[in-house]
Design a protein around this nucleic acid. Structure first.
Lengths: 379, 379
DNA sequence: CTGAAAGCGCTTACAG
DNA sequence: CTGAAAGCGCTTACAG
């Protein structure tokens, strides 16, 4: 407790700088000295004081991950894996008490923030941007001044809705449509309906306070009491959809026969509910790799022009909204895959030089991961 | 960007110390000065450099929460709420890549760690203890040198098993029984069987690599192929149980008629699967309050004798293992409630002066929280 | 290739 | 009640 670099230097009989060089793997230290220093470090149990380093260098060596929306849960897990693989340490400010999160990530000591929140409040974002905090957005919100990595939310929502249309459904409702944060998903939903020449009553679009199971349950229950009731529901997160399924079956309805349900996020949970949950699966691996690469690059070069990196998504049919009989899925993996391997990159309005990310695309096996080691879900 | 306390002092025409006093709410600054300083802070957008403060004071002002086992998910959420309510900032090292977590929490900058992992590796724990890191254990593992806050795991497992016995089950299996980390739950399971005069075959106790759904699925599938197959399964986490239910129904078995299932953790997810999941519910609010209180106390007074704070748990019958017809539940809330309000405190072997925690007990309504705002689960 | 000095931005004794 | 100085443990120019 309290072993400093100086103590190590004294024991090893070298200067503080040499110890620092060894600790940080800097070249220019002879092997013999390096060994002597290593020994001294081991003997004293020295561990560098991170705050001192931070104060001096301005770098914490930490990334922060903030996820306050469950449709990014799998993405968050993938980011943790990807960061660990590359040796980056990550702290998480989790989905928590509504206000807590937004407040929390301002003071987390990190060099950069991966912000998996939908539509971060404008003023908070402004403060971070002007403070120069490296920021990568993962959710729905876009900002000309920030990087974003994620699926094309409008298109993903359109594909989900089109999947329900392909099943012959016409009275399609949407749950989760917060006017602000979920704007693009609602836009995609409406686009799909418009193209099919369908006009959804306003009551079919339900905003919920949060994206959790209980919210989906109550929204669905109210929706199913509407006249006429919807014959399909698109939920903006998997937990919302899980709640909706339970509400439907509790009401004595059959899923998908009476009402089909599709979620958003591709979470594990959806494979185990009954009926199992159809869902839109963001390519979490691509997003994770691109997001980590990007935040690291942004930390190194704050002046990079902001870029948007679009990752592929797939519609994964399971029991709650199965593949249409014809077999021609409205949003085949091929169709929704990006033109460029690894996600396409759009130049942001302000960015004069669009930055090309290296995020190699890993083809997903079959149903997007459900094959590996899990239950075989009846088709 | 780069506004320091000195800048504020200059603008306000005071010394650095005065600004520091104002920022930290120290008394002894006249109201007029305080105002002037506040104004200067606002004008410059000053935010204190946390690392500098940390370096000087040795305090980060952060708590770290490490949860790598899902039976503590609800506890983790409650801790986040409790900490936020009391103005403590928390960073989370989440359940992630198996090794990542254990490695990660060593370098998270925090004044103390709430460690929700089962049986932390001895050597890692040793290192932290000798380093003097304030530590509160939340999982199964105990250590004479550390505080622990949580339910009585042996008793909780005994109650879960007794619940299955009360349903008339005799061939009761257990999933999740890692020899090390889950020892006490296995002990409780065996106690209950022994008291009922039942001898479970060794094959009925299954260790799994992880406590997730897919592990529960595979363990249950293998278990149900055993001859004779179990007529009830106690799972050491809710996700394990969710997987087990799916395995049983996939195999064409009826839950609970052919095989009853009970989980551990009282997670939300269990209310929505079908059949809904019976589970052991730790009193997350009591644990959360006690854990936060304790870690804060331990940070302030490192020499407190280590204490164990035992929180109450309840068995929550739902569809997958309903209440027995007689109505006399084997583990009524009353029976498993602690003698002392707020959880009983046991003196640790080394602690000569057992420390009494103040963790007021909140009686749980009905089924342990499931009543509020969720689906009405058929009895 | 290695060493002595300065300084990152705070807070904490110590004077006034 | 307020101010000037020292120092927390590192790393970064700068000399040798």
């Amino acid at each position: 407790m309290g072993v400093t670099l100086k103590d190590v230097a004294r024991l090893a009989g070298v200067s503080a700088k040499t110890v620092s060089n060894v600790v940080n793997g800097c070249p220019g230290v002879s092997d013999a000295l390096r060994r002597r220093v290593r020994d001294a470090i081991g003997q004293l149990g020295y561990r560098p004081h991170l705050a001192a380093r931070h104060l001096r260098t301005g770098r914490t060596g930490l990334l922060a991950l903030v996820v306050d929306t469950p449709h990014l849960d799998e993405v968050a897990r993938a980011i943790l894996r990807a960061a660990a693989q590359r040796g980056h340490r990550v702290v998480v400010a989790p989905r928590g008490p509504a206000r807590g999160v937004t407040a929390a990530w301002r003071d987390v000591p990190a060099d950069g923030i991966l912000l998996g929140t939908n539509a971060p409040p404008r003023d908070v974002l402004d403060a971070e941007v002007t403070a120069g905090t490296p920021l990568v957005l993962l959710g729905e919100g876009r900002d000309d001044r920030c990087d974003r990595v994620g699926v094309d939310m409008v298109r993903a929502a359109r594909d989900a809705t089109a999947h329900l249309l392909a099943l012959g459904r016409r009275r399609i409702a949407a749950i989760g449509a917060d006017p602000g944060p979920s704007r693009s998903r609602t836009a995609g939903y409406r686009q799909a309906l418009r193209r099919a020449g369908i006009d959804a009553p306003a009551a079919y679009v339900r905003a919920t306070a949060r994206p959790e199971r209980t919210d989906g349950y109550h929204a669905a229950r109210s929706l199913l009491a509407h006249d006429p009731p919807p014959d399909a529901i698109f939920c903006y997160s998997d937990p919302l959809a899980v709640g909706a399924i339970r509400a439907a079956t509790d009401a004595g309805l059959r899923v998908p026969d009476d009402v089909a349900v599709i979620g958003f996020g591709g979470t594990e949970e959806g494979r185990y509910v009954r009926p199992s949950l159809s869902t839109v699966v963001p390519d979490a691996e691509v997003i994770a790799r691109a997001a980590v690469t990007r935040i690291v690059a942004r930390i190194a070069c704050p002046d990079l022009p902001p870029a948007e990196i679009v990752a592929p998504h797939t519609v994964l049919p399971r029991e709650s909204a199965p593949a249409p009989p014809g077999g021609s899925r409205p949003a085949s993996p091929r169709e929704s895959a990006p033109e460029l391997p690894g996600g396409s990159v759009r130049a942001c309005p302000r960015g004069s030089v669009p930055h090309r990310e290296t995020a190699p695309h890993t083809p997903r096996a079959g149903d997007g991961g459900a094959a590996a080691g899990g239950p075989r879900v009846p088709a």
